[in-house]
Amino acid sequence: MSKSDHTGRGRRRARRDAPTRAPRERYEADDVRTDSDFDADAGPSRRGGRSTASRGGGVATAARPDTEEAESEGARGGRSAGRGRRGGAGQSRRGGRSGSPVDPVAKFSASALRRVSVLGDRPSQVVYNLAEQSTRTYGTRILAILLVLCLTALVALLGVLTYQLATDTVEGTGSGGSSAIVAPPEGHSTLVPELYQAQPQDDAFEPIAERPEGAGPIPEDDLFGSDTEELELDGQKLVRDQSQTTDTCTSMVWGEGVAESLVEGECTSAASAVYLDSDTEYIAQFNLFDLSSQDSAASVAEALNPDEASTAPGFLLPQKGGVDGLHKDYSQATAQVMGHYLAVYWVARTDGAEPGDDDTLSTLNVAAMNASTWVYRQVGEAEQK
């Protein structure tokens, strides 16, 4: 093996064994220095000494003879001198640059290197984190908007439900009857009868003492059929002038006490008819209320009694205008509990005058009771069940 082969092999081994040097970075406000500058600062002796030591070791291992060692030492000395000259030249060149202005590109590179160092040499991970945070912020905003819209819709729904409940309370219509008091019209009559009688409960109406489940409202056609179009007794005759039915019972009365008794008694429907005699000297009004039970009907009859001090004033509203009777002056009435129904018969002279010794008014009061023939039929049907 030649001397040159030994020498080259020793150099390569020295280079492998030498530790890898990490680049050093220094940043100053007025200069940017690279690895070559740091190597130049070390001087020719430092660089040359390190090279000589490493390479010398390689040569000593490869070449044993004295002649080979001498030649290797001469070669290394020449190379060390060359490196020293290059180091000195580098120092002179660096010294010449120290007074020159800083290159803007170098400043930008130094700033970029600082950012990379501060971010932990992982700029891509930081960018990913920033993007993820931006996505989360956007999602949070969308969620907040959706929550606001849901709350707005909920408030609107509650408003609609509240309005519907309020409307149902005021109107009080439906199969369940009125659940609120309907105020009487302005200027309504507040007449109460001079004579009021409440008939005692009759056991004949026991089959209909309770209103059956699912019972419908009072049928106007059946209640006011042809058999009740004319009512006659002892030569006195009344002819039906008008009739109506309603599921708002309180619309046929005035007075808070009477209206409350109808609501508490679960009145589901009511009917009314007005009768006149052939000479239009007398007027009679028939009212029928459908309540939940016999006891409820009795409570309403008590509330209608103008002589009852424990109840507030109140009575029926007259259904026919244009006549004085039932609007003012004298009148008389009779209430009869007929199972869960309450029938009221109210009569007067059309001019409102007192009857005196004439008993015609009393006769017509009894004749008006024939208007409730339909209730008797209800008793017969209940007994057959």
Score class of each variant (00 low, 15 high):
residue 1 M to L: 12
residue 2 S to G: 15
residue 4 S to H: 01
residue 8 G to E: 10
residue 9 R to A: 07
residue 12 R to D: 10
residue 16 R to D: 11
residue 24 R to T: 11
residue 28 E to H: 08
residue 32 V to M: 05
residue 38 F to M: 01
residue 42 A to C: 05
residue 44 P to M: 02
residue 46 R to Y: 10
residue 50 R to L: 13
residue 60 A to G: 03
residue 61 T to P: 00
residue 71 E to Y: 06
residue 71 E to H: 01
residue 72 S to A: 15
residue 72 S to G: 14
residue 77 G to E: 06
residue 80 S to D: 12
residue 81 A to Y: 05
residue 82 G to R: 13
residue 88 G to V: 05
residue 95 G to L: 13
residue 100 S to T: 15
residue 103 D to E: 15
residue 104 P to S: 11
residue 104 P to L: 04
residue 106 A to L: 14
residue 109 S to I: 10
residue 121 D to F: 11
residue 127 V to L: 14
residue 130 L to P: 00
residue 134 S to C: 02
residue 135 T to H: 03
residue 137 T to N: 10
residue 138 Y to S: 13
residue 138 Y to F: 07
residue 139 G to W: 10
residue 144 A to K: 10
residue 154 L to V: 07
residue 158 L to V: 06
residue 164 Q to A: 13
residue 167 T to Q: 13
residue 170 V to T: 12
residue 177 G to W: 13
residue 182 V to P: 01
residue 188 H to S: 13
residue 192 V to H: 01
residue 199 Q to L: 08
residue 200 P to F: 01
residue 207 P to F: 09
residue 208 I to V: 15
residue 212 P to H: 02
residue 212 P to Q: 11
residue 214 G to P: 06
residue 215 A to P: 03
residue 218 I to Y: 07
residue 225 G to K: 09
residue 226 S to C: 00
residue 235 G to V: 02
residue 236 Q to D: 11
residue 236 Q to F: 14
residue 240 R to P: 02
residue 245 T to V: 15
residue 246 T to Y: 00
residue 246 T to N: 04
residue 248 T to Q: 14
residue 256 E to P: 00
residue 256 E to S: 09
residue 270 A to N: 09
residue 271 A to F: 11
residue 273 A to G: 07
residue 277 D to G: 02
residue 283 I to P: 02
residue 286 F to H: 08
residue 303 A to E: 06
residue 305 N to Y: 01
residue 307 D to H: 08
residue 308 E to C: 02
residue 308 E to R: 09
residue 312 A to N: 11
residue 313 P to W: 06
residue 314 G to V: 07
residue 316 L to P: 02
residue 320 K to R: 13
residue 321 G to Q: 09
residue 322 G to V: 05
residue 326 L to E: 05
residue 328 K to E: 10
residue 332 Q to V: 02
residue 335 A to K: 03
residue 339 G to L: 07
residue 344 V to E: 06
residue 345 Y to S: 10
residue 346 W to D: 03
residue 347 V to K: 01
residue 355 P to Q: 12
residue 362 S to D: 14
residue 365 N to L: 15
residue 373 T to M: 04
residue 381 E to D: 15
residue 385 K to A: 15
